[in-house]
């Protein structure tokens, strides 16, 4: 038997006995960032494809959520900082090695772009909107001219934002559970899925709802595939990775993960969407609400379980 203890009584706050440096702020932000990225991706995609008329909710209405989602996410990030008054140091440098650095810069692109996008569509919500100031009108005219370019900026930056929410975790080799490159595509897919679900919830047009239910179904399929892939990778890897996988395969996170994330957040909504597309009518909001809740719980579980996984020596 091998027993290893710290005999000098180390009890550093938030580090011992188990790392807990990140609380609710980070997973909440990752969820909101992913959701916003999903919504903006579809708005940009259907603008570029010239399908604004077919999918009005996705292009014109749902993006109104994103500045709020991103702002709440940024507020959560700010609250998470321990040295808050120095937050501006993030924007004095760009360090490509650090996902948190280029992620912060991505937010500086996505957030203003999402606000401009909403401004261009403000008359969808308020038909008699008047900007009052001439320079604001000039700004609107300017961006209206370059709307396709703006859509491309949103398309690319939303993909970066979505994938970054996962890469943020996967860059830490000290936490074996996070240290898998699958996490980037997995969080991106999950973000796109929650974005599609939000559009289904908001849309009043049956054909649009059907289209996004179909997209969501496909994304859920990819997510399930990536989750299986992630566990296959862990189980075929080193001892610490096998132990990380066992947090979900018999360990303390087994029930929350397989019940709330996989069953209620992926499998059941996929079944409901499948039945809906096959013509069985049921309350259409159940599946998207489950997808969104599943996405939120997924971020929390990965954030917390990751801090419980570690190298042993």
């Amino acid at each position: 038997m091998k027993e290893e203890i710290i005999v000098s009584g180390r009890l550093n706050h938030l580090i011992d006995p188990q790392l807990h440096i990140w609380h609710w702020h980070i997973p909440l932000y990752l969820f909101l960032g992913g959701l916003a990225a999903g919504i903006l991706f579809f708005a940009a995609l259907y603008t570029i494809l010239g399908k604004e008329k077919e999918y009005p909710t996705a292009v014109k209405l749902a993006p109104f959520l994103t500045p709020a989602l991103l702002s709440i996410g940024l507020l959560a990030l700010f609250l998470d900082l321990n040295h808050k008054l120095y937050f501006w140091q993030l924007y004095t440098t760009l360090r490509l090695e650090s996902p948190m650095s280029w992620g912060a810069w991505t937010l500086m692109v996505v957030t203003p772009a999402s606000i401009v996008w909403c401004a261009l569509h403000i008359r969808e919500l308020f038909p008699n909107w008047d900007w009052k100031f001439n320079w604001l009108k000039a700004v609107e005219t300017f961006f209206n001219q370059y709307k396709q370019h703006l859509a491309w900026v949103l398309l690319i930056s939303s993909l970066i934002l979505g994938v970054y929410t996962g890469i943020l975790f996967s860059a830490f080799n000290a936490r074996p559970l996070w240290n898998t490159s699958i996490l980037g595509p997995l969080f991106l897919t999950s973000g796109l899925s929650t974005g599609a679900a939000a559009i289904v919830l908001m849309s009043k047009k049956a054909s649009e709802r059907h289209n996004f239910a179909r997209i969501d179904l496909m994304l859920i399929g990819i997510e399930l595939f990536l989750i299986v892939h992630m566990f296959m990778g862990f189980l075929a890897s080193t001892q610490v990775h096998i132990e990380a996988a066992h947090l979900f395969l018999g360990g303390p996170y087994t029930v929350p993960f397989w019940l709330f994330v996989v069953m209620l957040g992926l499998v059941i909504p996929a079944l409901l969407e499948f039945l809906e597309l096959r013509g069985f009518h049921m309350p259409y909001f159940i599946a998207p609400v489950l997808v969104i809740l599943g996405g939120l719980i997924f971020r929390f579980i990965i954030a917390y379980a990751g801090q419980a996984s570690r190298w042993l020596y």
């Binding site: 900082l81 937050f87 801090q307």
Partner: peptide, 13 residues
Amino acid sequence: KCIGCGACIASCP
């Protein structure tokens, strides 16, 4: 220069 984001704490094995 430190903003207290905790990334380095999470990154240290």
